[in-house]
Computed example of a mutant assay.
Amino acid sequence: MLVVRPAGPADLEALMELAVLSGRGFTSLPEDEAVLSERLALSQQSFTGAIAPAEAWYTLMLTDGETGAVAGVAGVRAGVGIGRPHFSFRIVTLAQHSLATKTRFDHQALVLVNECAGWTEVGSLFVRADRRSGGAGSLLARSRYMLIGADPLRFSHTVMSELRGWFDEDGRSPFWEGVSYKFYRIPFEQADHMVTASDGQFILDLAPRHPIYVELIDHGAAEAIGRVHRDGEPALALLEREGFERSGLVDIFDGGPTMTCARDSLATVRGSRTLRLAIGHDVDGPQYLLSSVAIPKFRATQAAAAIDDGMVTVDPQTATALGLREGEAVRVNG
């Protein structure tokens, strides 16, 4: 049985391993021990309520319920752009018309914006390659929405997710090389690292001040605008099933799309309800997504359950995985 639980400082070694496995361009999971250590400490403070709700950043670990081995990671950031701006490129259409030549043109352009301040971000979704079958990715992804549904007022009305942009077979980002590098003049890895390891001031200092006409940039870079990395296509499908749509915003470094959904329109949130737990044996029922309702001790898993008269019956193993006793509240989706 796979179980999703809160991450804390003790998970540093496992998280570093996942960061290495995630590969180039996975900005939200840098190969930086100091950054990841700080994030795990922040996660612990977030789950315990030691910091303001808007500043919380919850990290979730996907684990093997029997061995405790970590199979994946995901995160929920309650509010982006709180301490520093969160920059994106917005794809806009600029219309130009001339009566003299009786012509009209629509030009696509990239404009630097800071529109996401205060939005909740779900991200950092990564599952080890050998554990991606059997619904592990879906369980981990949807557990983030069960966390949001447990206490919606802790989170923004708008939920966003940034997907990794396109990289070619040689590991090069056409968007970075054709657009962003011309302004930042540093290697992608350095810029990628500075996003999480610095205050981000360099982004504003060096960013383009005027619209960038798409027709004037390299064809390969233009083709990469809003294109998802091949490894991110399953994550895109999960987001779309949840109700996310393209927002017209893209990442300023790799051109990956920003997806958004209204918090209360998330399919997992809308389709879940709170029931009372009963414990039985030889439970005969369909598979449900189950989670605890208290954020400090949040747990989520998928297991067979039987629902009747406001009660949901699970086997003892499932109850233990959720950290719940008979009669306690449990959130159910399915």
Rank of each mutant, 00 (worst) to 15 (best):
L204F: 08
L125F: 12
A50C: 01
F87A: 06
L40I: 04
A109T: 06
D106H: 14
L12R: 07
A300C: 12
M311C: 11
E38H: 01
D64P: 02
A78R: 00
A78V: 02
V269D: 05
I307D: 13
T258V: 11
A7R: 02
G68D: 07
A109G: 09
S291H: 04
L15N: 01
A129L: 10
P85W: 01
L324S: 03
A100Q: 15
Y288E: 13
V179T: 08
T301F: 01
V4M: 02
R331N: 11
V330M: 10
E169Q: 14
S272M: 02
V70F: 04
V312M: 02
G75I: 10
A222M: 08
T320D: 12
A224I: 07
G280F: 08
V330K: 05
G134V: 10
A300I: 12
H157E: 15
E33P: 12
S292T: 15
H210S: 05
N333G: 05
G123K: 05
R273H: 07
G135D: 06
V127G: 02
T196Y: 00
F155C: 03
E215R: 09
V111R: 12
G178D: 04
V20K: 06
Q287K: 14
F87Y: 14
T301V: 15
I203E: 04
S22K: 07
A278E: 13
L42R: 15
E177N: 13
